[in-house]
Amino acid sequence: MNKLLLSAVFGLLLLAQQAWGAIGCTLSNPAQDLKYLFPEMTSYKEDAREFGKIKEGEKHFKNLKVRLGSDLDPVYETYETPYTVYTVFKGETVIGIVHGVNVPGKGGVIQVFVSADPTTGEIKRAFFQRIESPAAKQLKSKEFLAQFNGVTLADLYKHDYYKVADPKSEKDKLGNLQPPANLDEKGKPDYEASLRGIRKNLILLDLFVFEQKAEPFYQRAQESIAKFNAEAKTGEAEAKTEPKSEAKSE
């Protein structure tokens, strides 16, 4: 009998190698939280997502690091970390997507959630569920968080280009992003971590829900930055050679 039980348990352990992961950065009280975000909602659905269980998961995991532009944290951002996507309905119509991520801050963990438009992927609202930071109060201010309303992942990728090539461009939705009022030096690392959290959140949402529709913007931004830098380098080189030729002509 015991052998049978042992076999059953180890059989399940083997099965586990092929199973689908689940509970990630979840809302602490989904029904209440989602109702607060979408007062008109009638139901919601939870979906578990994990790199290990999606097609080309390893590639996407590496891409996450590249698109974030920073190393992934070994505690909060592992390959096995599960995520939960909440799809919010009014009747049979999707009215919102909500997703959260954990990022490491200086004071501890920061849980950044966004509710997004199900069609465009634009942020409808960004909020912190948990923020262990000396600057928590400032970062949670409505004025600061409201700056992300309407922002898409494509906007973040475009910002990468504009801040290098044309920092004053009116097309840069994030060009005028301001840190929270009264943010002191101690709070700056957590401000940066919060921005990183929002970016990471949108990158994952793009992958899990929006079929990577922002990916062309990432590619274009990188190509354009490279081209801009190359041209700038050429310009510098030409500027350096010009005085010499002038001297020769003299």
Partner: peptide
């Protein structure tokens, strides 16, 4: 080819692929 999420057909997943977790 860019269909809004709300109009996309719901993916059909098997019992073990859809929100199924097993932990050891």
């Amino acid at each position: 080819n860019e269909t809004p999420v709300k109009n996309r057909p719901i993916e059909s997943k098997g019992f073990f692929e859809d929100n199924f977790t097993i932990k050891k």
